[in-house]
Computed example of a mutant assay.
Amino acid sequence: MELQTRKPNRLKNYDYSQNGAYFITICVQDRKPILSQIIVGEGLAPPVLKLLPFGECIKEQINNLEIRYENVKIDNYVIMPNHIHILMRIENQTGGASPSPTVSDIICAFKSLSTLECKKLLPIDILFQRSYHDHIIRDDIDYQQIWQYIDENPIKWAEDKYNTNI
């Protein structure tokens, strides 16, 4: 059986350790809704996002990114039932002796540590799908649109094609 060739998901010749803002999406393996629940409000009340135990674990690991990497800032994020969106910035200081971590290094460490911590709650083999999606933020308008998308993601969950409760 011949394996399908995967298309590269990173921008060719782009330095993913350079200063900038990045929008990251990480999906749960098989898109299982194990991170949170979205409880639909009554009447005009907005939906409420309630983190499940794995989601709480993920929240802690997202918050630890700024501690683990002094040049990483988490500006916004949302932990959906089966995926995570993170808006982060890399802010390198000039003249540093050691190389800065790339977005890939940061996400790889995040996924690995999150999986280890979640395994303490329940035995799981694989928490996340292989790889992740990234989008390099190009300007302030792009940044504001991504911010709004993250904030509105729970509201639009009922329409999401990966919502298994539809």
Rank of each mutant, 00 (worst) to 15 (best):
C118A: 11
W157D: 10
I107V: 11
Q145G: 00
V103H: 14
P101K: 08
I79C: 14
P123D: 15
I124D: 14
N82H: 06
K161R: 08
C118Q: 03
K156V: 05
E117C: 01
E152I: 03
I150M: 05
W157N: 03
Q129M: 06
L127V: 08
I106K: 09
G96F: 14
A97C: 04
H83P: 05
D160Y: 06
N153Y: 12
T94E: 14
N82P: 05
E117V: 03
T164V: 07
E159S: 03
I107W: 13
S100N: 14
S104F: 12
D105I: 00
H133S: 05
D134H: 05
L113H: 02
D142N: 01
S131T: 06
L121R: 02
H133C: 02
L113Q: 04
D139G: 01
E91W: 00
S104N: 13
S104Q: 12
C108P: 07
C108W: 14
D160P: 06
L127K: 06
H85I: 01
Y149Q: 04
G95M: 07
K161G: 11
I126H: 15
K161P: 13
H85P: 05
N82T: 02
I106N: 10
Y149W: 11
P101Q: 12
L121N: 02
P99F: 04
I79G: 14
L122K: 06
L122W: 14
Y149P: 02
G96K: 04
D140E: 15
D142L: 00
N92K: 03
I106H: 10
K111S: 08
D134L: 10
Q145H: 11
S104M: 11
Q93P: 08
I84W: 10
T102I: 12
S100I: 04
R89P: 03
I84G: 04
Y149V: 00
Q129N: 08
Q145N: 08
N163L: 06
I141Y: 15
I137C: 05
A97D: 10
F110K: 00
I90R: 07
V78K: 04
T164W: 12
T115C: 07
P154Q: 13
S114R: 00
P123S: 11
H135L: 02
E152K: 07
L116N: 13
S100G: 09
D140C: 03
K120F: 12
L127N: 06
